Simulated assay, not measured.
Amino acid sequence: MKLIFYGEKLSNIRKLNGLSRKELAEQLDITEQAIWQYENDSMLPRIDVLNKLGQLFNVDTKYFFTQEYLIHKVSEEKIAYRAEDRESRKKTKLEITFVNFLDYYINFFEQNLLIPQMPIMDIREKTLKMLQETNEDRNECIKKIAEFVRTELGLENNKDLMYTLEKSGIYIVEKKLGTQIDAYSTVTQDGRLYIVLGTVKKSAVRRNFDLAHELGHLLLHDDVDMDILSSADLKTIETEAHLFASAFLLPEMQFVKDFQSLTRKSNPDYYIELKRKYLVSIAAMEMRAYALGLLTYQENRYFWGQLNKKQYKSFEPLDDEIPPVRPGKVRALLKFVLDKEVMEIEEICKEVHIRPDFLSYLFNLETDFFKPYLTTQKDYFGHTEVIPIGDFRDKTSTR
């Protein structure tokens, strides 16, 4: 029986790892033309090249000789980047491949579980209806939607934002996105929502705003084709997502009451306790307050002068004291499935011809995450020690 090399699988796994053909060729010490020929099924790689590919991508060589299983559920028009980020077409295609892999393996691990209807789906439908039926200014509608969503999610304290969004049904993961991209969001063809956060170390308040911003995209811009928007249109939807995040994290009635207690509204140092409470940056709180008419023009000018003078634009008070929270839902899913022996990691890897390190890379897990499940003699966990799917918050999930 003749073995068939599937070049599409090499192309996809190369993109998953963020490599161009040229970069992969350099790592394998072959020509870029050779990579092109492999991926277009024009030439079969030598044995030594196959072995290097397996080591580099943490797969068995047999991986490249089985048909592609990846299901393409994400497209360019559904990737919500910052306006400037969309200039990189290459980057967008790489991230599409990443989310398609991510979605495939989450489906793989969930296939034997009963997953209930998630609240975020109902919230999205109601939000869309509010946008379609409103006769008022769109920005005013977005503010109302933000407070409506906060109420629907039952978010009382911003420190619980990550947990609340994951519990609502959004899948949040971390990935190396470089220094230019903070986060992005997308929705699959069958309606699964993703937020991808960069792993570059940043403050908890910055991460909270990223989460709220991407939530805004997922709720407000489902009907927007991101791939054909002009630069001006992209800036408009970015502004809308910012507006949503601000109103969502700083609900008007509560924030106005707290802000009015400040004795020096134009001095950034007087915002520190509010920052501790809301987990929102000093700069973002002032912008929200100014938009609500809580500062005069002169107070606003003086505030930004002081912010620059104190060099708070790059680093604010408390930024190094409040640890950012890490996602926990996907980790809890994997632990639940493996602890309960719904699946065996060896069987999973054997079925799709990958190695555990492939999954560690995909889900941004520590390299020894699967080690307890690879030993012959297992430590079996009692029921109380297993993280349930419905309550995956882990106190160790903060940096």
Score class of each variant (00 low, 15 high):
residue 385 E to G: 14
residue 40 N to P: 07
residue 78 K to H: 09
residue 277 K to I: 12
residue 118 M to L: 02
residue 390 G to S: 13
residue 66 T to F: 06
residue 319 D to R: 03
residue 347 E to P: 01
residue 295 L to K: 01
residue 190 D to N: 05
residue 97 T to R: 10
residue 243 L to D: 00
residue 5 F to M: 08
residue 221 H to D: 08
residue 35 I to A: 06
residue 246 S to D: 04
residue 90 K to Y: 06
residue 371 K to D: 12
residue 290 Y to K: 05
residue 187 V to E: 11
residue 302 Y to N: 11
residue 157 N to Y: 15
residue 370 F to P: 04
residue 254 Q to C: 11
residue 222 D to P: 04
residue 42 S to Y: 13
residue 242 H to R: 01
residue 391 D to V: 09
residue 232 A to Y: 11
residue 130 M to C: 01
residue 142 I to M: 07
residue 306 Q to I: 06
residue 283 A to C: 13
residue 151 T to V: 03
residue 382 G to W: 09
residue 196 V to D: 08
residue 55 Q to K: 05
residue 68 E to I: 12
residue 13 I to D: 04
residue 281 S to E: 15
residue 125 E to N: 05
residue 253 M to E: 14
residue 393 R to V: 10
residue 341 E to K: 14
residue 343 M to C: 03
residue 294 L to N: 00
residue 363 F to H: 12
residue 186 T to F: 04
residue 208 N to D: 00
residue 43 M to S: 06
residue 367 T to Q: 14
residue 181 I to P: 05
residue 297 Y to R: 02
residue 342 V to E: 08
residue 171 Y to I: 13
residue 243 L to P: 00
residue 88 S to Q: 05
residue 329 K to D: 07
residue 353 H to T: 08
residue 122 D to E: 05
residue 4 I to C: 11
residue 187 V to G: 04
residue 24 L to D: 00
residue 172 I to L: 09
residue 38 Y to W: 08
residue 167 K to F: 07
residue 67 Q to D: 14
residue 348 I to P: 00
residue 49 V to K: 03
residue 344 E to Y: 03
residue 98 F to R: 08
residue 79 I to V: 15
residue 358 F to I: 10
residue 171 Y to P: 06
residue 297 Y to F: 02
residue 52 K to M: 01
residue 317 P to H: 13
residue 324 P to I: 02
residue 279 L to M: 15
residue 158 N to Q: 15
residue 85 D to K: 03
residue 226 M to V: 07
residue 39 E to D: 13
residue 43 M to V: 04
residue 152 E to N: 07
residue 100 N to L: 11
residue 258 D to Q: 12
residue 106 I to G: 04
residue 2 K to M: 11
residue 293 G to F: 00
residue 74 V to E: 04
residue 265 K to P: 02
residue 174 E to K: 11
residue 214 E to P: 01
residue 262 L to G: 08
residue 379 D to K: 13
residue 72 H to K: 15
residue 254 Q to P: 05
residue 12 N to F: 14
residue 203 S to I: 00
residue 183 A to C: 13
residue 260 Q to D: 06
residue 71 I to K: 10
residue 314 S to V: 10
residue 276 R to C: 09
residue 129 K to S: 11
residue 216 G to C: 02
residue 214 E to K: 01
residue 47 I to P: 01
residue 147 E to Q: 09
residue 273 E to R: 10
residue 353 H to C: 10
residue 262 L to E: 05
residue 281 S to V: 15
residue 230 S to N: 09
residue 385 E to V: 07
residue 169 G to T: 12
residue 291 A to T: 03
residue 210 D to E: 00
residue 115 I to V: 06
residue 158 N to P: 15
residue 160 D to S: 15
residue 20 S to L: 11
residue 88 S to G: 02
residue 95 E to Y: 09
residue 236 T to W: 02
residue 238 E to I: 01
residue 148 F to K: 09
residue 85 D to W: 01
residue 360 S to Y: 14
residue 256 V to N: 08
residue 362 L to K: 06
residue 89 R to I: 07
residue 84 E to P: 04
residue 165 L to Y: 15
residue 189 Q to P: 00
residue 136 E to N: 11
residue 318 L to T: 08
